[in-house]
């Protein structure tokens, strides 16, 4: 198992270099001069502009700039954000807990609803529960995130007034950020109603961000279960006189989980992409919103650093998924 993990870590290196090149070039492909944007409407003299170009190293050829960037990463230095003048590393990790909290809630929401939905659809194949669940999943999958978010806001916040529209917690509450996770911090603050407020604020973003993974997981669970349900060992489980919950939920599901875990791992990438939209719509102070703002102000270091970190997270999650394969199905273990 250890050698398997080490070998997988070995494949990280080329992927990592690839991602660093793409993130580095991507932001520079955008038209616009970061230094002029920094100056704002007042403009800037040509001398000052040239001076700043030298200061940030933009006068160097791209390859030199990339080399500086890459050696910086290896020292754990992602550079200084142009806009805030703070290290990108600190900025990222100050905002990341908000994104992580939302993403975790979304993935839990998607898994907790998606897997049972997929099992029910597979067991009741062709009957009405299957048709209802799968057409709902198709609608959910096809819904553009921003549109879905607006519909939910109109209904639940606007018309029914059940949930707040934006932010992570009501302005009534204030407490120092400890872990960065609002659910945990609000509980620890001991203020009455703080936790409930944090939960309220999470509901809509969680649903919006979790909808596409939910649909994907439900459909994948269904098709994996359908394949497994016709296997001999499922017949054996039934022949033992076991109940449907144990036959479907244990004997069949355990074998069907491999492809399901795979899509869960892959949807972490989707979540990060979705977080950018969701966070913008709900004014969620996470890395997604931060990067959108970074693109607007051509904050090269922030955007390339943020992209790199997100790519790294997706890679680690997929490594964890590979390790899980072996835990779920011992036949795959080497």
């Amino acid at each position: 198992m250890l050698s398997f993990i080490l070998r997988r870590l070995g494949t990280f290196i080329p992927t990592f270099i690839g991602v660093s090149i793409v993130s580095f070039l991507f932001i520079r492909l955008l038209p616009g001069d970061p230094i002029l944007l920094m100056a704002g409407e007042r403009g800037m003299s040509a001398e000052r502009h040239a001076q700043l170009m030298v200061q940030f190293g933009f006068d160097q050829p791209l390859i030199t700039q990339y080399w500086d960037y890459l050696t910086g990463i290896l020292r754990g230095d992602l550079g200084i954000s142009f806009k805030t003048k703070r290290p990108v590393w600190d900025e990222f990790f100050a905002l990341f807990p908000a994104t992580l909290e939302l993403s975790l809630c979304a993935i839990v929401f998607a898994v907790v609803l998606g897997i049972p939905a997929g099992i029910i659809a597979a067991v009741k194949r062709g009957k009405w529960p299957d048709q209802v669940l799968m057409s709902t999943a198709l609608v959910g999958y096809s819904m553009p995130i921003f549109w879905w978010a607006l519909l939910l806001i109109i209904l639940f916040s606007g018309m029914l007034g059940w949930t707040p529209v934006s932010g992570r917690i009501s302005l009534m509450f204030f407490f120092p950020s400890g872990t960065g996770f609002m659910l945990i911090d609000s509980l620890r603050s001991g203020q009455a109603g703080a936790f409930a407020s944090a939960v309220e604020h999470l509901i809509l973003p969680t649903i919006v961000l979790g909808t596409i993974p939910l649909a994907v997981i439900a459909r994948q669970t269904r098709s994996a279960m359908l394949e497994v349900l016709s296997e001999d060992y499922v017949r054996t489980a039934k022949a033992k006189g076991l109940g449907p919950l144990r036959v479907n939920g244990l004997h069949a599901l355990r074998n069907a989980l491999i492809p399901v875990i795979t899509v869960i791992g892959l949807s972490v990438g989707t979540l990060m992409a979705g977080a950018i939209l969701t966070e913008t719509i709900f004014s969620w102070p996470g890395v997604g919103k931060w990067m959108v703002e970074g693109i607007g102000s051509r904050d090269y270091t922030a955007v390339q650093g943020g992209l790199l970190m997100i790519a790294l997270i997706v890679m680690v999650v997929n490594l964890v998924v590979d390790v899980l394969y072996g835990l779920i199905n011992p036949k795959i273990r080497r």
């Binding site: 001999d232 060992y233 004997h251 074998n255 011992p330």
Partner: peptide, 12 residues
């Protein structure tokens, strides 16, 4: 059953 290898659940 006929196929003993596939009649046992590989995960348990």
């Amino acid at each position: 059953f006929q196929e003993p290898m596939s009649s046992l659940n590989p995960c348990f």
